[in-house]
Design a protein around this nucleic acid. Structure first.
Length: 490
RNA sequence: CGGGGUGUAGCGCAGUCCGGUAGCGCACUUGGUUUGGGACCAAGGGGUCCCAGGUUCGAAUCCUGGUACCCCGACCA
């Protein structure tokens, strides 16, 4: 075995790290907490971007780009926003380096201190709302529906590849509206877009819900989220959509004249997903042999391994496959025909499993003569021999089947790991098992805080369209109208 | 920020206790044989032993100081 991956049961966290590095998605960089996203990992991100970008455009949004650097003073204009982000901001203080007069290398030129320090954006609400002030005068300028693809920096104390890195890639939508209701509708619409993307493309079931006040975005009136369950039963927030009310409009003085000619503050939403989704993808589906990628996001959907002795065999097999390659291309299926003669078939099989390629085809002279082909699917690791004739359609269906199968597998796992509990004793017992807990909560931040302190579990969300039922808070016994979802989270 | 670990060839590591020619596996290069589940043989190339200072005839190894990254926790839109 050239590449040993720690097994999930042994050490889930180590399994994840091994997998990310050994499958070639990303590496640690020489900067603490920052990663190098390698071509294979970036290809997944590009597929995610393409799908999401289309969904954003289809819902009326356009892309723009705002600066990486933000004047320090901007951040403090919205009180709770600065409180949330100040402690993890990287700051630019100087603009020049000079040769070190005492030795080798360069030092910061003390004479090149910035008048006002700049922060590297941890998120762009402030610089964007400062810009919107100039763009919005009338109700005719609204709504403003803008998205940006960007990188942000948050100086996290502890980082993990993809899940929490100091620098990460994301998209952030920032919209401006003339009414509260319209902004709320936008917030909910984008949550639906995220949920659809997670379930349809990533094959990852998610719970849609609202955050409790404790877990809200710094500066939001309401934070909506999608929460996914990883294979170790922990929760991962996979996307958020915030209703910002008029907080940023007030902080940056963004007003518009309504139809009656009166000035009003603008209503806002913001929403984002990040490269963390790649972490989610890995932890939702993969196994001890490597990645398991959903066909819709796999950079390579079909790998073909010809097994040959000498140029003549290879040529025969290549000729046999030529029409199939065209057919698959026409079906928009990405294929790699791997005729690399320096690696043996067994090596390639293992490598494509590690990389999570959904379907692998193998053909040697035996199959060639018989008019058959070996088909291996990554999700179940099943192999079968099929007739070569008509294999294009078979593969197309198989990819759909794999996409559906891994979604169903993840959904079955999740649904069987959500427990309803009604007493504190049950809660304490259940939280030591993998999975989510559905329980009544009295709605107070104090109770949530206390539960977190005692169990490390947080309220992941208050599910949307939640069933209303009378109950008692699992901790205080105070009356409650609905259940909320508790879990330990990444 | 607390605790732990690690810095030696591209990668993974041994050597450090007990100072004395810098090693192993993988990868790489060349040639050959192989090819249906991670091939084999032969030859070869590759080093600021994290940095600085000290002890010593001599330091990867001992001493002092620094630094970087990783892991566990606390923290975390």
């Amino acid at each position: 075995m050239a590449k040993e991956i720690t097994s999930r049961v042994n050490d889930y966290s180590q399994w994840y790290n091994d997998l990310v590095v050994k499958s070639g998605l990303a590496d640690h960089s020489s900067v603490r907490g920052c990663m190098v996203i390698k071509p294979y990992g970036f290809a997944i991100w590009e597929k995610m971007q393409a799908a999401l970008d289309k969904m954003f455009k289809d819902t009326g949004h356009v892309n723009a780009y705002f600066p990486l650097l933000i004047p320090k003073s901007f951040l403090s204009k919205e009180a709770s926003h600065v409180e949330g982000f100040a402690k993890e901001c990287a700051v630019v203080t100087h603009y020049r380096l000079i040769n070190d007069p005492n030795g080798k290398g360069v030092i910061v030129d003390p004479d090149a201190k910035l008048e006002e320090e700049l922060i590297i954006r941890p998120t762009s609400e402030t610089i964007i709302w400062n810009t919107y002030k100039n763009w919005i005068q009338s109700y005719r300028d609204l709504p403003l529906l803008i998205n940006q693809w960007a990188n942000v920096v948050r100086w996290e104390m502890r980082t993990r590849l993809f899940l929490r890195t100091a620098e990460f890639l994301w998209q952030e939508g920032h919209t401006a509206h003339s009414t509260s209701q319209e902004a709320i509708e936008e917030t909910e619409r984008m949550l639906d877009v995220y949920a659809e993307f997670a379930e349809k493309w990533m094959a990852m079931p998610v719970l849609k819900g609202k955050k409790s006040p404790n877990e809200r975005f710094a500066g939001a009136l309401d934070t909506y989220c999608i929460e996914a369950m990883m294979q170790d039963g922990q929760a991962l927030q996979a996307g958020t959509s915030h209703f910002l009310g008029q907080n940023f409009a007030k902080a940056f003085d963004v007003k518009f004249a309504n139809k009656e000619g009166k000035e009003e503050f603008v209503w806002a939403s913001s929403w984002g997903v990040s490269t963390r989704l790649i972490g989610a993808l890995i932890m939702a589906h993969s196994d001890d042999e490597g990645l398991v990628l959903p066909p819709m996001l796999a950079p390579i959907q079909v790998a073909i391994v010809p097994i040959f002795k000498g140029e003549e065999d290879l040529k025969k097999i290549e000729e046999k496959f030529a029409p199939l390659l065209l057919e698959l291309k026409a079906k928009n299926i990405s294929v790699k025909f791997d005729k690399d003669d320096t690696k043996r078939p067994g090596f390639k099989f293992a490598e494509y499993e590690l990389k999570g390629v959904p379907v692998r085809l193998a053909m040697g002279m035996r199959d060639y003569e018989a008019g058959t082909i070996e088909v291996a699917r990554r999700d179940t690791k099943e192999k079968s021999v099929q007739q070569f004739e008509g294999i294009g359609n078979y593969i197309e269906k198989l990819l759909e089947d794999i996409q559906a199968n891994i979604f169903n597998r993840a959904k079955t796992f999740r649904d069987s790991h959500i427990r309803e509990v009604n007493t504190w004793d049950e809660f304490l017992k259940a939280i030591e098992e993998p999975g989510f807990i559905s329980a009544h909560w009295d709605g107070t931040p104090a109770t949530e805080e206390k539960i977190k302190e005692l169990t490390k579990a947080t309220i992941r969300c208050i599910p949307l369209n939640n069933k209303q039922e009378d109950g008692k808070c699992v901790f205080t016994g105070n009356p409650s109208k609905e259940r909320v979802v508790f879990a330990r989270a990444y």
